[in-house]
């Protein structure tokens, strides 16, 4: 509950200002693929125990998406873009 996200636009902000866009699938978000690849991307979440790339939307701030890597156990965050 104490997650602070380093937003590239707004600085360090509490995570309650963000919406979670879920984990970033292999090959990135919005990749066009065939039916099977698309199915895997939409439904088969990896749900890793460890570092996980994710998308978050800063709805109560700059209203931009950020991509970051969050450790799902410690909630430590790095690689913010």
């Amino acid at each position: 509950m104490a997650l602070m996200f380093p937003c590239p636009q707004c600085g360090s902000r509490p995570f309650t200002e963000f919406w979670c866009g879920g984990e970033l699938p292999d090959g990135g978000h919005g990749a066009a693929g065939d039916i099977e690849a698309d199915y895997a991307r939409v439904w088969l979440k990896r749900n890793v125990c460890g570092d996980q790339p994710e998308r978050w939307f800063h709805h109560a701030g700059c209203r931009r998406w950020i991509s970051l890597t969050r450790h799902t156990v410690t909630n430590l965050i790095h690689d913010v873009v």
Binding site: W19, G21, G28, H29, G30, R55, F57, H59, R63, R64, W65
Partner: peptide, 13 residues
């Protein structure tokens, strides 16, 4: 409200 995140998400991706 949510549509903004939806539109921006795809445009960026």
């Amino acid at each position: 409200d949510a549509m903004e995140s939806w539109l921006r998400d795809w445009a960026e991706s």
